[in-house]
Design a protein around this nucleic acid. Structure first.
Length: 208
DNA sequence: ACTTTTTGACCGGAA
DNA sequence: CTTCCGGTCAAAAAG
């Protein structure tokens, strides 16, 4: 079997039932290119929508707006521990979830370096936790002086189930690669973070 | 050629 | 003391 070891045509992710999530970017690309598959909104902000969710039946009406975040600040845990639990039901009241729009949207078309926070995140791990049915991804701020970490639980649909920020940014937000103009007014990434700390993410969500 | 993502393994802490 | 789970690191692959 050694010969097979060397040859790896396909990813041996057989043990990963969440392969969908892994190749989410690819799917997006494919979807955008073919315009077929599950999604039926080529060129739209909609991504993958599958009524396979079990945590909290998300409204398949509008995925973009079907995401909300309920901030659960744990002041008794650590210095900075912001826990945001997405609640599709509450989104109805939050039709301005532009931030989350970006999260579900392939900003660059492939990688999601710039998340809704406006900061650059680098994924450094993924784990399937018991408490959650969805895999938890671990992100770290790309800034060398930024000890901020982020835990994101994404559903198989690519929706954000839960986001937990840990720490605070020691640097202002990196200038978004997207040009201002009218585009920004449509789907901006909350450049109103005051460039101080993680308050950015807090502001947007807290505003909701 | 570089950066980021992906995945398996390892380590530490908590129960 | 043992077991389980979460979190992190490192190597490889892909874009």
């Amino acid at each position: 079997m050694q010969s097979q070891e060397k040859i790896t045509p396909v990813k041996p992710v057989a043990s990963r039932p969440f392969s969908s999530f892994t190749s989410f970017s690819k799917l997006l690309k494919d979807f955008t290119a073919t315009g077929s598959a599950t999604i039926s909104s080529p060129g739209e902000t909609v991504i993958v929508r599958r009524p396979k969710v079990t945590r909290f039946a998300p409204p398949p009406s509008d995925l973009s707006a079907g995401i909300a975040a309920t901030m659960l600040q744990d002041a008794g845990l650590d210095t900075t521990h912001e826990k945001m639990v997405i609640d599709p039901e509450q989104v109805v009241s939050c039709d301005q979830m532009t931030a989350f729009h970006d999260i579900n949207k392939p900003i660059h078309g492939v990688k999601n370096r710039l998340s809704y926070d406006g900061y650059n995140w680098r994924k450094y791990g993924q784990k399937q936790v018991k408490g959650s049915e969805f895999p938890r991804s671990y992100y770290k701020c790309t800034h060398p002086t930024c000890p901020v970490k982020r835990k994101v639980e994404t559903t198989v649909d690519g929706q954000i189930a839960e986001i937990v920020y840990n720490g605070e940014h020691n640097h202002p937000q990196p200038h978004p690669p997207k040009k201002p103009a009218s585009l920004a007014s449509t789907e901006v990434v909350v450049p109103d973070a005051h460039g101080s700390n993680d308050a950015g993410a807090e502001s947007q969500l807290g505003g909701c």
